[in-house]
Deep mutational scan, measured.
Amino acid sequence: MDVFMKGLSKAKEGVVAAAEKTKQGVAEAAGKTKEGVLYVGSKTKEGVVHGVATVAEKTKEQVTNVGGAVVTGVTAVAQKTVEGAGSIAAATGFVKKDQLGKNEEGAPQEGILEDMPVDPDNEAYEMPSEEGYQDYEPEA
């Protein structure tokens, strides 16, 4: 019985440690998101679009440190934060509304985080759909 109880105690310690790591990862992701939003706020009209992409990228980098179902929630929060940063930029006159959601080359930025393969159960990952990809044929 002692062996059984000791095993359960060790398992509990492992769960607590994993929860603490997840909590730490979420806190880091939130900190990076805040950094990115402050970065966007300090940019001029020309830099705002690039700044919004930076927020998304920093958040995406930190999301990889967070495991399990938390990833889905962090990704949703990050996307809403990026959308909010863009709205703030438009409201303050840093950028025109028609410039939001495009990178410096004018290509749409939507789907940055949505296409990231995420499995809350950590069982399997699927690649994003290939609808947006084109076949590449090298020139002879």
Results as ranks from 00 to 15, higher is better:
residue 104 E to P: 05
residue 109 Q to R: 07
residue 88 I to L: 11
residue 34 K to Q: 01
residue 46 E to K: 08
residue 110 E to F: 11
residue 13 E to S: 03
residue 118 V to L: 11
residue 112 I to Y: 04
residue 42 S to F: 09
residue 71 V to N: 02
residue 65 N to E: 06
residue 47 G to R: 11
residue 139 E to T: 06
residue 94 F to E: 02
residue 56 A to L: 14
residue 116 M to F: 01
residue 100 L to N: 08
residue 109 Q to C: 10
residue 129 S to K: 06
residue 131 E to G: 02
residue 56 A to W: 13
residue 58 K to I: 05
residue 129 S to Q: 06
residue 38 L to W: 09
residue 133 Y to W: 10
residue 41 G to E: 01
residue 69 A to T: 08
residue 91 A to H: 11
residue 86 G to H: 12
residue 65 N to L: 07
residue 47 G to M: 09
residue 63 V to F: 04
residue 112 I to T: 11
residue 97 K to C: 07
residue 97 K to Y: 03
residue 119 D to V: 09
residue 76 A to R: 07
residue 61 E to T: 07
residue 37 V to N: 00
residue 20 E to I: 11
residue 46 E to L: 05
residue 75 T to Q: 12
residue 117 P to I: 06
residue 10 K to F: 08
residue 110 E to C: 10
residue 110 E to H: 04
residue 131 E to W: 06
residue 7 G to H: 06
residue 9 S to Y: 14
residue 32 K to G: 00
residue 139 E to K: 08
residue 33 T to I: 05
residue 45 K to V: 15
residue 56 A to H: 14
residue 50 H to K: 11
residue 8 L to D: 00
residue 96 K to Y: 09
residue 23 K to S: 04
residue 5 M to Q: 01
residue 20 E to V: 03
residue 125 Y to K: 09
residue 102 K to R: 14
residue 2 D to N: 15
residue 90 A to E: 03
residue 19 A to G: 02
residue 14 G to H: 08
residue 20 E to C: 07
residue 83 E to F: 11
residue 74 V to Q: 01
residue 47 G to E: 03
residue 51 G to W: 15
residue 57 E to F: 13
residue 124 A to T: 04
residue 78 A to K: 05
residue 74 V to I: 05
residue 69 A to Q: 05
residue 127 M to A: 04
residue 91 A to R: 06
residue 50 H to C: 15
residue 137 E to A: 08
residue 84 G to I: 14
residue 88 I to Y: 15
residue 44 T to P: 01
residue 62 Q to H: 11
residue 137 E to H: 12
residue 85 A to H: 04
residue 128 P to M: 10
residue 125 Y to Q: 09
residue 31 G to T: 10
residue 2 D to C: 03
residue 29 A to W: 14
residue 64 T to V: 10
residue 57 E to G: 06
residue 92 T to D: 02
residue 136 Y to A: 08
residue 138 P to T: 09
residue 65 N to H: 12
residue 53 A to M: 15
residue 96 K to G: 10
residue 3 V to R: 13
residue 11 A to Q: 00
residue 75 T to K: 11
residue 89 A to Q: 04
residue 125 Y to P: 08
residue 27 A to L: 15
residue 26 V to Q: 00
residue 11 A to E: 00
residue 79 Q to K: 13
residue 108 P to G: 09
residue 122 N to T: 10
residue 29 A to Y: 06
residue 129 S to W: 03
residue 88 I to V: 03
residue 24 Q to A: 11
residue 44 T to N: 01
residue 86 G to R: 05
residue 56 A to G: 09
residue 118 V to Q: 02
residue 43 K to S: 03
residue 60 K to W: 03
residue 111 G to Q: 09
residue 23 K to G: 02
residue 65 N to S: 08
residue 15 V to T: 01
residue 106 G to D: 05
residue 124 A to L: 07
residue 70 V to G: 02
residue 90 A to C: 12
residue 96 K to L: 07
residue 138 P to Y: 10
residue 28 E to Y: 05
residue 139 E to Q: 03
residue 41 G to A: 15
residue 130 E to T: 10
residue 109 Q to L: 14
residue 136 Y to K: 13
residue 140 A to R: 10
residue 140 A to F: 15
residue 37 V to S: 01
residue 6 K to L: 12
residue 52 V to G: 01
residue 7 G to Q: 04
residue 65 N to P: 01
residue 2 D to K: 04
residue 33 T to F: 08
residue 54 T to K: 09
residue 103 N to W: 11
residue 107 A to R: 13
residue 63 V to M: 15
residue 90 A to T: 06
residue 110 E to P: 07
residue 107 A to L: 13
residue 137 E to C: 09
residue 30 A to L: 14
residue 92 T to W: 12
residue 43 K to F: 05
residue 132 G to E: 14
residue 15 V to E: 00
residue 8 L to W: 15
residue 122 N to F: 03
residue 124 A to E: 07
residue 90 A to M: 14
residue 114 E to F: 10
residue 62 Q to Y: 09
residue 59 T to F: 14
residue 43 K to L: 07
residue 40 V to C: 10
residue 44 T to A: 08
residue 110 E to L: 08
residue 89 A to E: 03
residue 118 V to T: 04
residue 75 T to P: 01
residue 37 V to K: 01
residue 14 G to A: 15
residue 21 K to M: 12
residue 116 M to I: 12
residue 62 Q to V: 10
residue 82 V to G: 02
residue 118 V to G: 13
residue 49 V to N: 02
residue 74 V to F: 08
residue 25 G to M: 14
residue 12 K to D: 00
residue 109 Q to I: 07
residue 126 E to A: 15
residue 91 A to L: 09
residue 59 T to N: 01
residue 47 G to N: 04
residue 109 Q to A: 05
residue 81 T to V: 15
residue 101 G to L: 14
residue 25 G to A: 15
residue 100 L to Q: 11
residue 81 T to W: 05
residue 21 K to D: 00
residue 6 K to P: 00
residue 27 A to V: 12
residue 113 L to W: 15
